[in-house]
Design a binder for these strands. Structure first.
Length: 932
RNA sequence: GCCGAUGUGGCGAAAUGGCAGACGCAACGGACUUAAAAUCCGUUGGGCUUAACGGCCCGUGCCGGUUCGAGUCCGGCCAUCGGUACCA
C-alpha cells in the first residue's frame, strides 16, 4: 500500500508558512505607544476561552472555536483593524496535582510539558495568535497580579448606598472585617473522607467524588469567601444589553435566582425573639398552619422541648449522615420531626407548631419557612404526611367570607399555587394576589412584623481550596486575625514540596512546608490556595499588556483594547437608560457552554470590583459571546476513549493538511450547533482546496507545480464578475455573522465556476439556459448585453474548444483572470491561510503587486452593479403553485408582469373554468394568480 | 417537574413570509486508464404518468390557525438532546 498522493503539496507549504509567521510575526498586535502603532485603525479584540493544558492534548472540539476566532481575526486585519488575538493557558488545576500525587513529578513540570504540546498543536493548525502575548496563570509573573487583585478585593467593601465596591477605608462601621468583599467564614464544604480532602462542587457528581466515586458529605470548615452576592442585582441588570445568546443570559439569571417577596417575623409565645421566614407569597400568610426550620438551623437547639429532644437529635443525626446523593434521591419523600415548640401566626395570632425537615435548606432565605400547605406543593405533601391542617386562602374567583369562618370542611385535594383572590384572610379578603401581597406586606411593615425583601439563590463564592497547585493567598494570620501581606512581597510563590497529597485532616498540603508557613515570630501564612477560576477571572485583561511588571494591566493598554469599539454586525444597543458600564470589553469571545455560569459570572464579578475601584474602563468584560457546539464522533456519540471515536487533529492534518482541517471544522455546519465529525467530509473540503490550487497551478512533466499558463491579465467576463462580486458580498456578510459554512459554500461555487468551462462562460448562476426563453448558442447570452472586448476574446478561444480539450491542454486553452484569483485568495485567506499565502506569492512572481504579502492586502468590497441581472426569471403561480417561469427584463413593471401572466398559456390552462380573483405581483420575485 | 435547544433527502446541511433541498458527502452512470487511484462530466427527495420531450401529485416531526402564499409567523401537541432540581 503506497502512500496516497497529496492533491496539493500542503505538507511542504504549510510548515513553510508557519515558520515564516514564526520569524516575521505578522500577527503581532501593537499597543498604543509602541513604534508603528496606528491609532487611526479601529481595534478589535477577539478571544478564545483559553484551555486547561491537559495531558491528553487537543481534541477536535478545541479548534472549532479557535478556528472561528482565527478567521475573524484574520478577516478584521484585512479589514484594517488593529487586532488583539491572544492565547494562553489556564494552567493551575487538579489533574496536574493528581498526576503529581501518583508519580511524584512536580506539577510545574507536568504543566510545562503539557503546555508545550498544546502550543505545538495549535501552531500546526496555523492560528494567527500573537504568541508574544502568551501567558500562563501558573507563572509567578501572572499570579503575582492574581494575588494583587485578591488584595484589592480584600481591601474593599460593597457600599449599599452607592451600590459599588469601595476601599474599606470608606467604611464607617466598627468591624470592617464583617463587610470585606473577601472574608472568612465557617461554611459547609464538600468533604470526602475517603480522599481526605475537600472538593469543589464541580468535582462532586451525584454526591460522589468525581475521582474514585467516594461519598461526599457536607462538613463545616473555615473558608475564604468572596461576597459576590453583593453584586447580584448588578450582575442581573448589566447582563441585559450584552450581545450574548439569550439562553446563556437566562442561565445566569436563573443561577442568580432573584425572587421578590417579604420577610415575616413569627413571634414565639414561649421564648424571646422571633423566627423570620422569607416568602414570595405573603398573601397566603393566613394559610400558614405550621413552620419548618432547616435541621441545621441554630434556633433548633433553643426551641426543642425536652419531650421532643430525642426525636429531634435523632433526625438531625440522620440528616447529617445523608450524603448529597441520598438527599437528592430522596428529594420527593418528605420527612421531619416536630420540635414541640410553637410560634404565633402574625396575622391570625394562631399558635402553630414548629417542625424541622430537610426539605428546608439552611442556605436559602433564613433557613426557615412558613408552611402553607394549601398553596405550596411541598408544604402540601408534608402536611398530608403529618396530618397538619390545610387551609385554603386563595381562590380562583373572589369570595369574601364575612366573619372569617373557618374554611372548607373538606381540605383541598391538591395545592393550588397560581394567583387568584384572597379568601379567609380578613385583612385582604377579595384582593387579587398581586394587590394582596402589597397590602399584607405594608401591614406587616407597619406592625414591625416584616418587610418587603428580595432574595437571591446566588451564594457567596467559596474561594479557598486545600490544594498545592494553585495561587497561595497573600494573607497571614496574627493572633487569630487575618491581614494582608505588603504588595511588594508579591508574587507569593508556593514552597517546593515533594508530597502533594492531602493531609487527611483537611489541613492543606502547604502546612507541610514548615519554614514557609512561618511568616514571623508572631504570624503564619494562610495555608489555602485559590480555586482554578481565579486566573481565568482576569486573564483577558492581562493579554492587553502581558509583560507589564508595574501594574496588572497598563491603563492605556486597557483603555484601548477593552474600550468600546463599533463592531460591524453587532446589534445596536437597545435604547433606554445608559448602562453603568460603557459598552466596551472583548469584542468577540468564543467558547463552550460549560462555562455559561461559573467562569462567565466570576469574571464579570471581578471586572465590576476592579471597575468600581477605578482600575478599569468598563464594567463588563465580554461584549459579544458565542458558544460553539460540541463535535461528536463519526458514530454520532460524544467523543471519548470509551467509544474509540476520538479524532486527533494532528492525524487529520497529516493526511489532509491544516487548511483542510480548518475549513472542514467550519464547513460542518453552524458554529453553535452540535454536529458529528465525518472524514469523508474532510475529504470533500480538501478536494475544494485542491481545485482552488489547480486553478492557479499546474504540474509540469517533472511533476513540479508551476504557475498555470492559463493565468493571465485578462478582464473577467460579465458572468465571472457576477460570481466574484456575489462571493465578496456573501463571504463578508457571512464572516460577520459567523456563518462560516455558507461562506465556504459560496467560495466553492466560485471555484467551480472558474474550474469548469461549462459552468463559467455560459452559465453563471441565474443565467442558465431557460427552456423556451429563446436562447441560441448556449454560451452566448444576449449579444445586446454589450460585452467588452476581453470577454469576447475569452470566448473566442474558449468556446470552440470542447471541455475535454481544455483540460488536456490547460495552457492557452482558456484564460483565468489574475484579478479574479487575487480576490478569491484574499477571501479564502482567513479560512485557508497557508494555501492562499503560497498561491499569492506564486502569482506575485509573474504578476507583481504592492504590498507583496497577502496579509497586508485590503479586503475587497463588492460592487452592486455587477450583481444586477439584465433579465431575471419569474415564476408564475396559480393558487400558489408554480406553473411556468418566464424570463423578463429586470425593469419589468407590475403591470407588465400581470399582463404576461394573464397571457401565459400555462396560467390559462390552470385557471380555465375558474374566475381570477386577484393577481399578486411582486416585481423581481413572482406572480401569483388567485382563481377559484 | 421546570428551563433551554433541536426536528428539512441515504448523510452534514441551505433557504429577507415568495421556485424547498444551495454547497458538500455517499451512491449510481460515463470519460480518461492495460487496470486501479486521482481527476473530469452527468444523474440523484418520494410517487404516478409518457415511446420520448415532458406532465401531474405528495413532501420540511404531528394537529390546527393567520396569509394570495408558511420550513419560516401564531396556538396546541410529540420526539431527541442539553441544563437544573425541594430555592419557600
Amino acid at each position: 500500500m503506497s502512500e496516497r498522493r497529496k492533491p496539493y503539496p500542503f505538507d511542504l507549504l504549510e510548515p513553510k508558512w508557519q515558520n515564516l509567521w514564526e520569524e516575521r510575526r505578522p500577527f503581532r498586535a501593537l499597543n498604543p505607544g509602541d513604534p508603528g502603532f496606528d491609532p487611526a485603525r479601529p481595534k478589535y479584540y477577539v478571544l478564545d476561552m483559553f484551555p486547561y493544558p491537559s495531558g491528553t492534548g487537543l481534541h477536535v472540539g478545541h479548534p472549532e472555536g479557535y478556528t472561528a476566532t482565527d478567521i475573524v481575526a484574520r478577516y478584521k486585519r484585512l479589514r484594517g483593524c488593529n487586532v488583539l488575538h491572544p492565547m494562553g493557558w489556564d494552567a493551575f488545576g487538579l489533574p496536574a496535582e493528581q498526576y503529581a500525587i501518583r508519580t511524584g513529578q512536580h506539577p510545574e513540570i507536568t504543566t510545562r510539558e503539557n503546555i508545550a504540546r498544546f502550543r505545538t498543536q495549535l501552531k500546526r493548525i496555523g492560528f494567527s495568535y500573537d504568541w508574544e502575548r502568551e501567558i500562563s496563570t501558573a507563572s509567578p509573573e501572572f499570579y503575582r497580579w492574581t494575588q494583587w487583585i485578591f488584595l484589592q478585593i480584600y481591601h474593599s467593601w460593597f457600599n449599599p448606598e452607592t451600590q459599588r465596591a469601595e476601599p474599606i477605608a470608606t467604611y464607617r462601621g466598627a468591624d470592617p472585617d464583617s463587610v470585606r468583599l473577601a472574608y472568612v467564614a465557617e461554611v459547609p464544604v464538600n468533604w470526602c473522607p475517603e480522599l481526605g480532602t475537600v472538593l469543589a462542587n464541580e468535582e462532586v457528581i451525584d454526591g460522589k467524588s468525581e475521582v474514585g466515586g467516594f461519598p461526599v458529605v457536607k462538613r463545616p470548615m473555615r473558608q475564604w469567601m468572596l461576597r459576590i452576592t453583593a453584586f447580584a442585582e448588578r450582575l442581573i441588570d448589566e447582563l441585559e444589553p450584552l450581545d450574548w445568546p439569550e439562553g446563556i443570559k437566562l442561565l445566569q439569571r436563573n443561577w442568580i435566582g432573584k425572587s421578590e417577596g417579604a420577610e415575616v417575623r413569627f413571634t414565639l409565645p414561649d421564648h424571646d425573639g422571633a423566627i423570620a421566614v422569607f416568602t414570595t407569597r405573603p398573601d397566603t400568610l393566613y394559610g400558614a398552619t405550621y413552620m419548618v426550620l432547616a435541621p441545621e438551623n441554630p434556633l433548633v437547639e433553643q426551641l426543642t422541648t425536652n419531650e421532643q429532644r430525642p426525636a429531634v437529635d435523632a433526625y438531625k443525626a440522620q440528616v447529617a449522615a445523608k450524603s448529597d446523593l441520598e438527599r437528592t434521591d430522596l428529594a420527593k419523600d418528605k420527612s421531619g420531626v416536630a420540635t414541640g415548640a410553637f410560634a404565633l401566626n402574625p396575622v391570625s395570632g394562631e399558635r402553630i407548631p414548629i417542625w424541622i425537615a430537610d426539605y428546608v435548606l439552611m442556605g436559602y432565605g433564613t433557613g426557615a419557612i412558613m408552611g402553607v400547605p394549601a398553596h405550596d406543593e411541598r408544604d402540601f405533601e408534608f402536611a398530608q404526611k403529618y396530618h397538619l391542617p390545610i387551609r385554603e386562602v386563595v381562590a380562583e374567583t373572589p369570595r369574601t367570607t364575612e366573619g372569617g369562618e373557618l374554611p372548607c370542611a373538606m381540605p383541598p385535594l391538591i395545592a393550588t399555587t397560581g394567583d387568584g383572590f384572597a379568601i379567609n384572610s380578613p385583612l385582604i379578603d377579595g384582593l387579587p394576589t398581586a394587590e394582596a401581597k402589597q397590602r399584607i406586606t405594608a401591614w406587616l411593615a407597619d406592625q414591625g412584623l416584616g418587610r418587603g425583601t428580595i432574595n437571591y439563590k446566588l451564594r457567596d463564592w467559596l474561594f479557598s481550596r486545600q490544594r498545592y497547585w494553585g495561587e497561595p493567598f497573600p494573607i497571614i494570620w496574627r493572633e487569630g486575625k487575618h491581614e494582608a501581606i505588603p504588595e511588594n512581597e508579591l508574587p507569593l510563590v508556593p514552597p517546593p514540596l515533594d508530597d502533594f497529597k492531602p493531609t487527611g485532616t483537611g489541613e492543606p498540603p502547604l502546612a507541610r512546608a514548615k519554614e514557609w508557613v512561618r511568616y514571623s515570630d508572631a504570624a503564619t501564612r494562610e495555608l489555602n490556595t485559590m480555586p482554578q477560576w481565579a486566573g481565568s477571572c482576569w486573564y483577558y485583561l492581562r493579554f492587553c499588556d502581558p509583560a507589564n511588571d508595574q501594574r496588572f494591566v497598563g491603563k492605556e493598554a486597557e483603555r484601548y483594547w477593552m474600550g468600546s469599539s463599533e463592531s460591524p454586525g453587532r446589534a445596536p444597543l437597545a435604547p433606554g437608560p445608559a448602562p453603568r458600564f460603557r459598552g466596551g470589553g472583548v469584542d468577540l469571545y468564543i467558547g463552550g457552554t460549560e462555562h455559561a455560569v461559573l467562569h462567565l459570572l466570576y469574571a464579570r464579578f471581578w471586572q465590576k470590583v476592579l471597575f468600581d475601584l477605578g482600575h478599569l474602563s468598563t464594567g463588563e468584560p465580554f461584549q459579544r459571546l458565542v458558544n460553539q457546539g460540541i463535535i461528536l464522533g463519526e458514530d454520532g456519540r460524544k467523543m471519548s476513549k470509551r467509544w474509540g471515536n476520538v479524532i486527533d487533529p494532528l492525524d487529520v492534518i497529516a493526511e489532509y493538511g491544516a487548511d483542510a482541517f480548518r475549513c472542514y471544522e467550519m464547513f460542518m455546519g453552524p458554529l453553535e450547533q452540535m454536529k458529528p465529525w465525518s472524514m469523508t467530509g474532510v475529504e470533500g473540503v480538501a478536494r475544494f482546496l485542491a481545485r482552488a490550487w489547480r486553478l492557479v497551478m499546474e504540474e509540469n512533466q517533472a511533476g513540479e507545480w508551476m504557475l498555470s499558463e492559463s493565468v493571465a491579465e485578462v478582464e473577467p467576463t460579465r458572468a465571472q464578475l457576477k460570481v466574484i462580486h456575489a462571493t465578496i458580498k456573501k463571504v463578508s456578510e457571512d464572516i460577520e455573522a459567523l456563518s462560516f459554512n455558507t461562506a465556504i459554500a459560496q467560495m466553492m461555487i466560485f471555484v467551480n465556476a472558474f474550474t469548469s468551462p461549462g459552468r463559467t462562460a455560459s452559465a453563471g448562476p441565474g443565467s442558465a439556459p431557460v427552456p423556451g426563453a429563446g436562447f441560441g448558442v448556449p454560451p452566448k447570452q444576449s449579444s445586446a448585453v454589450g460585452e467588452d472586448a476581453e470577454s469576447a476574446q475569452v470566448r473566442e478561444s474558449g468556446t470552440p474548444a470542447p471541455a475535454r480539450e481544455t483540460r488536456a491542454l490547460p495552457g492557452g486553452a482558456r484564460s483565468v483572470p489574475v484579478a479574479a484569483l487575487r480576490t478569491l485568495l484574499v477571501l479564502l485567506n482567513p479560512f485557508a491561510p497557508h494555501l492562499t499565502s503560497e498561491l499569492w506569492e506564486t502569482l506575485g512572481r509573474r504578476f507583481p503587486v504592492e504590498p507583496a504579502e497577502i496579509t497586508n492586502q485590503r479586503w475587497p468590497e463588492y460592487r452592486a452593479e455587477f450583481l444586477i441581472e439584465d433579465e431575471i426569471e419569474i415564476p408564475l403561480q396559480v393558487n400558489g403553485k408554480v406553473r411556468d417561469r418566464i424570463t423578463v427584463p429586470i425593469t419589468a413593471t407590475s403591470a407588465e408582469l400581470e399582463a404576461l401572466a394573464r397571457a401565459n398559456v400555462r396560467v390559462q390552462e390552470f385557471s380555465a373554468g375558474l374566475t381570477i380573483r386577484k393577481i399578486i405581483v411582486i416585481p423581481k420575485r413572482l406572480v401569483n394568480v388567485v382563481a377559484n
